[in-house]
Design a protein around this nucleic acid. Structure first.
Lengths: 156, 156
DNA sequence: TAGATCCTTGGAGTGCGCTCCAGGCAAGCG
DNA sequence: CGCTTGCCTGGAGCGCACTCCAAGGATCTA
Protein backbone atom coordinates (compact mmCIF):
# COMPACT_ATOMS: atom_id res chain seq x y z
CA UNK A 1 0.00 0.00 0.00
CA UNK A 2 1.24 3.44 -0.97
CA UNK A 3 2.83 5.33 1.87
CA UNK A 4 1.08 8.45 0.62
CA UNK A 5 -2.37 6.98 1.03
CA UNK A 6 -4.67 9.28 2.93
CA UNK A 7 -7.05 7.16 4.92
CA UNK A 8 -8.92 7.50 8.15
CA UNK A 9 -6.87 4.62 9.48
CA UNK A 10 -3.69 6.60 9.48
CA UNK A 11 -5.58 9.68 10.31
CA UNK A 12 -7.36 8.52 13.42
CA UNK A 13 -4.24 6.77 14.55
CA UNK A 14 -2.55 10.15 14.37
CA UNK A 15 -5.25 11.40 16.67
CA UNK A 16 -5.18 8.77 19.35
CA UNK A 17 -2.78 10.77 21.46
CA UNK A 18 -5.49 13.38 21.79
CA UNK A 19 -8.22 11.01 22.92
CA UNK A 20 -9.44 10.90 26.49
CA UNK A 21 -7.58 8.19 28.38
CA UNK A 22 -9.71 5.12 27.68
CA UNK A 23 -7.88 2.44 29.64
CA UNK A 24 -10.49 -0.23 29.05
CA UNK A 25 -9.58 -0.75 25.45
CA UNK A 26 -8.18 -4.06 24.35
CA UNK A 27 -4.89 -4.14 22.46
CA UNK A 28 -5.01 -4.02 18.67
CA UNK A 29 -5.28 -7.49 17.16
CA UNK A 30 -7.76 -8.82 19.66
CA UNK A 31 -9.93 -5.72 19.70
CA UNK A 32 -13.42 -7.14 19.40
CA UNK A 33 -16.20 -5.34 21.26
CA UNK A 34 -19.89 -6.14 21.44
CA UNK A 35 -22.35 -3.36 20.86
CA UNK A 36 -23.08 -2.98 24.56
CA UNK A 37 -19.37 -2.69 25.35
CA UNK A 38 -19.08 0.08 22.79
CA UNK A 39 -22.16 1.72 24.27
CA UNK A 40 -20.49 1.69 27.68
CA UNK A 41 -17.22 3.03 26.27
CA UNK A 42 -18.76 5.83 24.24
CA UNK A 43 -21.81 6.80 26.25
CA UNK A 44 -24.00 6.25 23.21
CA UNK A 45 -26.85 3.75 23.35
CA UNK A 46 -26.82 0.53 21.33
CA UNK A 47 -29.84 1.94 19.51
CA UNK A 48 -27.84 4.97 18.47
CA UNK A 49 -24.88 2.87 17.35
CA UNK A 50 -27.12 0.80 15.09
CA UNK A 51 -28.80 3.93 13.84
CA UNK A 52 -25.42 5.53 12.99
CA UNK A 53 -24.67 2.49 10.91
CA UNK A 54 -28.02 2.56 9.13
CA UNK A 55 -27.62 6.18 8.08
CA UNK A 56 -24.08 5.64 6.85
CA UNK A 57 -22.27 7.44 9.63
CA UNK A 58 -20.30 4.30 10.51
CA UNK A 59 -18.27 2.15 8.14
CA UNK A 60 -19.36 -1.45 7.78
CA UNK A 61 -18.91 -3.16 11.14
CA UNK A 62 -17.50 -6.68 11.36
CA UNK A 63 -19.91 -9.42 12.36
CA UNK A 64 -19.43 -12.57 14.42
CA UNK A 65 -20.24 -15.90 12.75
CA UNK A 66 -23.80 -15.50 14.03
CA UNK A 67 -24.24 -12.00 12.74
CA UNK A 68 -23.59 -9.96 15.88
CA UNK A 69 -21.60 -6.76 15.55
CA UNK A 70 -17.97 -6.81 16.61
CA UNK A 71 -16.43 -3.35 16.84
CA UNK A 72 -12.68 -2.71 16.58
CA UNK A 73 -10.40 -0.09 18.07
CA UNK A 74 -10.56 1.69 14.76
CA UNK A 75 -14.32 1.91 15.05
CA UNK A 76 -13.88 3.42 18.50
CA UNK A 77 -11.49 6.00 17.06
CA UNK A 78 -14.06 6.94 14.46
CA UNK A 79 -16.75 7.20 17.12
CA UNK A 80 -14.50 9.46 19.15
CA UNK A 81 -14.17 11.77 16.17
CA UNK A 82 -17.90 11.70 15.58
CA UNK A 83 -18.40 12.57 19.23
CA UNK A 84 -16.15 15.59 18.89
CA UNK A 85 -17.90 16.75 15.75
CA UNK A 86 -21.25 16.28 17.45
CA UNK A 87 -20.10 18.62 20.20
CA UNK A 88 -19.58 21.32 17.62
CA UNK A 89 -23.24 21.09 16.66
CA UNK A 90 -22.41 19.75 13.21
CA UNK A 91 -25.55 18.18 11.73
CA UNK A 92 -25.45 14.42 11.41
CA UNK A 93 -26.01 14.78 7.66
CA UNK A 94 -22.70 16.66 7.38
CA UNK A 95 -20.89 13.97 9.31
CA UNK A 96 -22.40 11.39 6.99
CA UNK A 97 -21.05 13.43 4.10
CA UNK A 98 -17.58 13.32 5.64
CA UNK A 99 -17.89 9.57 6.20
CA UNK A 100 -18.81 9.15 2.53
CA UNK A 101 -15.74 11.09 1.47
CA UNK A 102 -13.56 8.85 3.61
CA UNK A 103 -15.14 5.74 2.11
CA UNK A 104 -14.78 7.14 -1.40
CA UNK A 105 -11.00 7.11 -1.18
CA UNK A 106 -7.99 9.32 -1.67
CA UNK A 107 -9.35 11.50 -4.43
CA UNK A 108 -11.66 13.16 -1.91
CA UNK A 109 -8.70 14.40 0.07
CA UNK A 110 -9.09 18.07 -0.89
CA UNK A 111 -12.78 18.11 -0.14
CA UNK A 112 -12.22 16.60 3.30
CA UNK A 113 -9.54 19.16 3.98
CA UNK A 114 -11.90 22.00 3.08
CA UNK A 115 -14.65 20.51 5.17
CA UNK A 116 -12.38 20.30 8.18
CA UNK A 117 -11.21 23.86 7.74
CA UNK A 118 -14.77 25.12 7.44
CA UNK A 119 -15.69 23.20 10.57
CA UNK A 120 -12.74 24.74 12.35
CA UNK A 121 -14.00 28.20 11.46
CA UNK A 122 -17.45 27.29 12.74
CA UNK A 123 -15.98 26.15 16.02
CA UNK A 124 -14.03 29.38 16.40
CA UNK A 125 -17.19 31.35 15.73
CA UNK A 126 -19.13 29.31 18.29
CA UNK A 127 -16.43 29.92 20.88
CA UNK A 128 -16.57 33.66 20.18
CA UNK A 129 -20.36 33.62 20.55
CA UNK A 130 -20.10 31.78 23.82
CA UNK A 131 -17.54 34.25 25.11
CA UNK A 132 -19.92 37.07 24.24
CA UNK A 133 -22.64 35.31 26.15
CA UNK A 134 -20.25 34.77 29.03
CA UNK A 135 -19.66 38.51 29.19
CA UNK A 136 -23.39 39.15 29.42
CA UNK A 137 -23.81 36.51 32.10
CA UNK A 138 -20.92 37.92 34.11
CA UNK A 139 -22.46 41.36 33.99
CA UNK A 140 -25.81 40.04 35.14
CA UNK A 141 -24.20 37.94 37.84
CA UNK A 142 -22.29 40.86 39.25
CA UNK A 143 -25.47 42.92 39.10
CA UNK A 144 -27.24 40.29 41.18
CA UNK A 145 -24.29 40.03 43.54
CA UNK A 146 -24.33 43.81 44.08
CA UNK A 147 -28.08 43.77 44.59
CA UNK A 148 -27.63 40.95 47.08
CA UNK A 149 -25.03 42.89 49.07
CA UNK A 150 -27.26 45.97 49.04
CA UNK A 151 -30.24 43.98 50.30
CA UNK A 152 -28.06 42.41 52.98
CA UNK A 153 -26.78 45.76 54.22
CA UNK A 154 -30.32 47.09 54.27
CA UNK A 155 -31.41 44.23 56.48
CA UNK A 156 -28.44 44.95 58.80
CA UNK B 1 -40.34 52.27 44.36
CA UNK B 2 -37.57 50.85 46.50
CA UNK B 3 -34.15 51.59 45.14
CA UNK B 4 -33.14 48.06 46.11
CA UNK B 5 -35.74 46.45 43.89
CA UNK B 6 -34.26 43.71 41.74
CA UNK B 7 -36.09 43.67 38.45
CA UNK B 8 -35.26 42.77 34.90
CA UNK B 9 -35.89 46.38 34.00
CA UNK B 10 -32.91 47.62 35.88
CA UNK B 11 -31.05 44.53 34.99
CA UNK B 12 -31.41 44.63 31.26
CA UNK B 13 -30.78 48.33 31.29
CA UNK B 14 -27.48 47.52 32.93
CA UNK B 15 -26.78 45.25 30.01
CA UNK B 16 -27.57 47.54 27.15
CA UNK B 17 -23.97 48.63 26.84
CA UNK B 18 -23.11 45.07 25.89
CA UNK B 19 -25.73 44.68 23.18
CA UNK B 20 -24.82 44.65 19.52
CA UNK B 21 -25.12 48.16 18.09
CA UNK B 22 -28.78 48.27 17.09
CA UNK B 23 -29.09 51.77 15.71
CA UNK B 24 -32.62 51.30 14.44
CA UNK B 25 -34.20 51.43 17.85
CA UNK B 26 -36.56 54.23 18.70
CA UNK B 27 -35.90 56.32 21.82
CA UNK B 28 -37.57 55.24 25.05
CA UNK B 29 -41.01 56.77 25.46
CA UNK B 30 -42.06 56.30 21.86
CA UNK B 31 -40.71 52.81 21.55
CA UNK B 32 -43.55 50.94 19.90
CA UNK B 33 -42.66 48.19 17.45
CA UNK B 34 -44.92 45.93 15.43
CA UNK B 35 -44.21 42.23 15.42
CA UNK B 36 -42.63 42.36 11.98
CA UNK B 37 -40.32 45.18 13.05
CA UNK B 38 -39.20 43.09 16.00
CA UNK B 39 -38.73 40.13 13.69
CA UNK B 40 -36.47 42.24 11.51
CA UNK B 41 -34.54 43.54 14.51
CA UNK B 42 -34.02 40.19 16.19
CA UNK B 43 -33.82 37.79 13.28
CA UNK B 44 -36.62 35.73 14.78
CA UNK B 45 -39.79 35.10 12.80
CA UNK B 46 -43.14 36.59 13.83
CA UNK B 47 -44.27 33.01 14.35
CA UNK B 48 -41.51 32.43 16.83
CA UNK B 49 -42.22 35.68 18.65
CA UNK B 50 -45.87 34.68 19.14
CA UNK B 51 -44.81 31.21 20.16
CA UNK B 52 -42.39 32.59 22.76
CA UNK B 53 -45.29 34.51 24.22
CA UNK B 54 -47.61 31.49 24.25
CA UNK B 55 -45.11 29.34 26.14
CA UNK B 56 -44.43 32.06 28.70
CA UNK B 57 -40.97 33.01 27.53
CA UNK B 58 -42.05 36.62 26.95
CA UNK B 59 -43.78 38.88 29.44
CA UNK B 60 -47.21 40.16 28.45
CA UNK B 61 -46.81 42.34 25.38
CA UNK B 62 -48.75 45.62 25.04
CA UNK B 63 -51.52 45.69 22.45
CA UNK B 64 -52.75 48.46 20.19
CA UNK B 65 -56.41 49.48 20.40
CA UNK B 66 -57.12 46.86 17.73
CA UNK B 67 -55.30 44.08 19.53
CA UNK B 68 -52.03 44.08 17.63
CA UNK B 69 -48.79 43.55 19.57
CA UNK B 70 -46.69 46.61 20.33
CA UNK B 71 -43.23 45.73 21.58
CA UNK B 72 -41.11 48.12 23.65
CA UNK B 73 -37.37 48.61 24.00
CA UNK B 74 -37.57 46.60 27.19
CA UNK B 75 -39.04 43.70 25.25
CA UNK B 76 -36.15 43.96 22.82
CA UNK B 77 -33.71 43.85 25.74
CA UNK B 78 -35.35 40.70 27.00
CA UNK B 79 -35.22 39.15 23.54
CA UNK B 80 -31.54 39.98 23.33
CA UNK B 81 -30.93 38.10 26.57
CA UNK B 82 -33.02 35.18 25.35
CA UNK B 83 -30.95 35.16 22.18
CA UNK B 84 -27.74 34.94 24.17
CA UNK B 85 -29.08 32.15 26.35
CA UNK B 86 -30.24 30.31 23.26
CA UNK B 87 -26.68 30.41 21.94
CA UNK B 88 -25.54 28.56 25.02
CA UNK B 89 -27.87 25.71 24.14
CA UNK B 90 -30.03 26.32 27.20
CA UNK B 91 -33.36 24.52 26.70
CA UNK B 92 -36.33 26.80 26.16
CA UNK B 93 -37.98 25.28 29.22
CA UNK B 94 -35.15 26.59 31.39
CA UNK B 95 -35.49 30.05 29.92
CA UNK B 96 -39.19 29.92 30.66
CA UNK B 97 -38.31 29.01 34.22
CA UNK B 98 -36.08 32.08 34.44
CA UNK B 99 -38.84 34.25 32.97
CA UNK B 100 -41.23 32.92 35.60
CA UNK B 101 -38.78 33.83 38.35
CA UNK B 102 -38.51 37.35 36.99
CA UNK B 103 -42.30 37.69 36.85
CA UNK B 104 -42.65 36.28 40.36
CA UNK B 105 -40.80 39.22 41.88
CA UNK B 106 -37.93 40.07 44.17
CA UNK B 107 -38.14 37.05 46.43
CA UNK B 108 -36.82 34.89 43.59
CA UNK B 109 -33.60 36.85 43.53
CA UNK B 110 -31.42 34.11 45.03
CA UNK B 111 -32.77 31.46 42.70
CA UNK B 112 -32.13 33.63 39.65
CA UNK B 113 -28.61 34.26 40.88
CA UNK B 114 -27.95 30.53 41.23
CA UNK B 115 -29.45 29.85 37.82
CA UNK B 116 -27.20 32.43 36.22
CA UNK B 117 -24.13 31.03 37.94
CA UNK B 118 -24.98 27.49 36.88
CA UNK B 119 -25.48 28.71 33.33
CA UNK B 120 -22.13 30.44 33.48
CA UNK B 121 -20.48 27.15 34.47
CA UNK B 122 -22.23 25.39 31.60
CA UNK B 123 -20.92 27.98 29.18
CA UNK B 124 -17.38 27.58 30.48
CA UNK B 125 -17.70 23.83 30.08
CA UNK B 126 -19.00 24.20 26.52
CA UNK B 127 -16.10 26.48 25.66
CA UNK B 128 -13.66 23.91 27.05
CA UNK B 129 -15.32 21.15 25.03
CA UNK B 130 -15.10 23.23 21.88
CA UNK B 131 -11.46 23.97 22.51
CA UNK B 132 -10.85 20.24 22.86
CA UNK B 133 -12.59 19.70 19.57
CA UNK B 134 -10.58 22.50 18.03
CA UNK B 135 -7.38 20.72 19.05
CA UNK B 136 -8.56 17.54 17.32
CA UNK B 137 -9.54 19.46 14.20
CA UNK B 138 -6.22 21.24 14.10
CA UNK B 139 -4.38 17.95 14.34
CA UNK B 140 -6.44 16.47 11.53
CA UNK B 141 -6.05 19.59 9.43
CA UNK B 142 -2.30 19.58 9.74
CA UNK B 143 -2.32 15.88 8.93
CA UNK B 144 -4.20 16.60 5.72
CA UNK B 145 -1.94 19.54 4.96
CA UNK B 146 1.15 17.32 5.33
CA UNK B 147 -0.43 14.62 3.21
CA UNK B 148 -1.22 17.24 0.61
CA UNK B 149 2.35 18.47 0.49
CA UNK B 150 3.62 14.90 0.25
CA UNK B 151 1.26 14.12 -2.64
CA UNK B 152 2.31 17.35 -4.37
CA UNK B 153 6.00 16.54 -4.09
CA UNK B 154 5.35 13.04 -5.38
CA UNK B 155 3.65 14.47 -8.45
CA UNK B 156 6.63 16.77 -8.97
C1' DT C 1 -30.93 -28.26 29.52
C1' DA C 2 -33.37 -24.43 31.50
C1' DG C 3 -33.64 -19.70 32.20
C1' DA C 4 -31.74 -15.24 31.98
C1' DT C 5 -29.52 -12.00 29.32
C1' DC C 6 -27.90 -10.03 25.11
C1' DC C 7 -28.27 -9.23 20.25
C1' DT C 8 -30.84 -8.96 15.69
C1' DT C 9 -34.22 -6.45 12.43
C1' DG C 10 -37.59 -2.95 10.29
C1' DG C 11 -40.42 0.29 11.53
C1' DA C 12 -42.92 3.26 14.65
C1' DG C 13 -42.72 6.82 18.28
C1' DT C 14 -40.79 10.88 21.01
C1' DG C 15 -39.28 15.54 22.40
C1' DC C 16 -37.65 19.78 20.99
C1' DG C 17 -37.89 24.05 18.67
C1' DC C 18 -39.86 25.94 15.72
C1' DT C 19 -42.90 26.57 11.26
C1' DC C 20 -46.89 26.89 8.83
C1' DC C 21 -51.93 26.97 7.78
C1' DA C 22 -56.76 28.44 7.55
C1' DG C 23 -59.90 31.70 8.38
C1' DG C 24 -60.74 36.20 9.70
C1' DC C 25 -60.16 41.26 11.22
C1' DA C 26 -58.20 45.99 10.40
C1' DA C 27 -55.79 49.74 8.07
C1' DG C 28 -54.11 52.30 3.96
C1' DC C 29 -54.80 53.53 -0.88
C1' DG C 30 -56.51 54.75 -5.76
C1' DC D 1 -65.45 50.48 -2.92
C1' DG D 2 -62.44 46.95 -3.55
C1' DC D 3 -57.64 45.57 -3.17
C1' DT D 4 -53.50 44.68 -0.82
C1' DT D 5 -50.95 44.20 3.16
C1' DG D 6 -50.28 43.14 7.88
C1' DC D 7 -51.74 41.07 11.93
C1' DC D 8 -54.74 37.90 14.79
C1' DT D 9 -55.86 32.94 16.65
C1' DG D 10 -55.70 27.79 17.69
C1' DG D 11 -53.97 23.96 16.07
C1' DA D 12 -51.53 20.99 12.86
C1' DG D 13 -47.05 19.78 10.79
C1' DC D 14 -42.03 19.38 10.27
C1' DG D 15 -36.99 18.17 10.69
C1' DC D 16 -33.69 16.49 13.61
C1' DA D 17 -31.58 13.15 16.49
C1' DC D 18 -32.52 9.87 18.61
C1' DT D 19 -35.45 6.13 21.22
C1' DC D 20 -38.17 2.36 21.58
C1' DC D 21 -40.96 -1.80 20.20
C1' DA D 22 -42.02 -6.57 18.84
C1' DA D 23 -40.61 -10.83 17.68
C1' DG D 24 -37.18 -13.82 17.28
C1' DG D 25 -32.22 -15.81 17.48
C1' DA D 26 -27.67 -16.25 20.21
C1' DT D 27 -24.94 -16.72 24.38
C1' DC D 28 -23.95 -17.48 29.04
C1' DT D 29 -24.48 -19.60 33.89
C1' DA D 30 -25.97 -23.32 36.86
Amino acid sequence: MDVMTVTETTDTRTDTCAMPPQGDRRPDGKDKYTISEVAALTGLTAHTLRWYERIGLMPHIDRSHTGQRRYTNRDLDWLALVGKLRLTGMPVADMVRYAELVRAGDHTYAERFELLKATREDVLARIAELQGTLAVLDRKISFYADAGRALASERA
